[in-house]
């Protein structure tokens, strides 16, 4: 086993962001985070005080999403949200980048948008969600560089509500773009310990997932066979497989699919499993 079960747990932001979430589920989330000693619970702003109270005095951080999930709100609103959730007990904020502005190459605006949140967070950890599924590689790289320049502590792949989840390919690209001193959080579609290990191998230092318990419990099986970690079909982890015309801008979708044609694994891309 490349890392221990406990080490894996400490990398996980135990996440519950669905709109229908009841208070009892937030309580369950916090209790699980305490049991497994996850890094944090990742929640919507409305639950911040309740979670902070439940986790008070523990090693589990309270991580709250900002401008979520679209990132298209006003900078002032993002900053206000950040200030308020930190005041109410959040120690980490995950903000969504202004994706449209990034694609417009309006880098000054994007930088300022992030900088305002970093400032409002008042020392709390800030992670910037790029929503990689809406971007081509160059835009992802640019998003990473700007986030770093603006003083953010992490870049993060996805919201989990966008067109794609995290892929090792994107994590690797983001790690290369930000260097070794900044955090990279992989989030979206991480459901098994194998997904988790792939992200860690690609350079992730934090994992956002609503399957934290399942990942940790599943990882216990790894102690009984090495065969779990045999390679899978290459398409399984490729962002181009996840691309969807229904969910992505046409040019982004085609950018991903064009790569399939020249991929060295093209002949293996016959079935969709």
């Amino acid at each position: 086993m490349p890392i221990t079960v406990d080490e894996l747990a400490k990398l996980i932001d135990h996440t519950r962001l669905k709109p229908e979430t009841k208070r009892v589920k937030i309580q369950e989330l916090c209790e699980e985070a305490l049991t497994y000693e996850f890094a944090s619970v990742c929640i919507n702003p409305v639950h911040v005080e309740f979670a902070a109270e439940l986790l008070s005095g523990s090693s589990v951080d309270v991580c709250v999403v900002i401008g979520f999930p679209l990132g298209a709100t006003l900078t002032e609103v993002k900053a206000f949200e950040a200030r308020e959730v930190v005041r109410k007990g959040a120690t980490e904020v995950d903000m969504v980048i202004n994706v449209g502005a990034l694609r417009d190459k309006n880098y000054d605006f994007v930088r300022s948008d992030i900088r305002e949140v970093v400032s409002a967070a008042d020392g709390a950890i800030v992670k910037v969600i790029l929503e990689t599924g809406l971007l081509i590689d160059e835009e992802k790289r640019q998003g990473c560089i700007i986030s770093k320049e603006a003083g953010a502590h992490f870049v993060k792949t996805s919201t989990g509500f966008g067109p794609m989840g995290a892929t090792p390919y994107d994590v690797q690209l983001m790690r290369k773009a930000v260097g070794n001193k900044m955090g990279v959080k992989a989030a979206g579609g991480i459901r098994t310990f194998k997904d988790a290990l792939r992200m860690i191998n690609a350079g992730a230092t934090r994992l956002g997932t609503s399957s934290g318990v399942s990942i940790v419990e599943g990882y216990r099986w790894a102690g009984y066979s090495d065969a779990w970690l045999e390679p899978d079909k290459p398409c399984w982890t490729c962002p181009s497989r996840q691309a969807s015309l229904a969910k992505q801008p046409k040019e982004v979708y085609l950018w991903y699919k064009e790569r399939c044609v020249t991929c060295p694994h093209r002949d293996e891309n016959i079935f969709n499993d």
């Binding site: 459901r191 098994t192 310990f193 194998k194 599943g218 090495d226 065969a227 779990w228 045999e230 899978d232």
Partner: peptide, 25 residues
Amino acid sequence: GPEILGSPVLVDRDRIEGKAGLVNL
């Protein structure tokens, strides 16, 4: 379980490498 349902984790159903170990387990 592992080859179709992904429990505890999905493994490539077409791959033969490693299957003897998992069947044994």
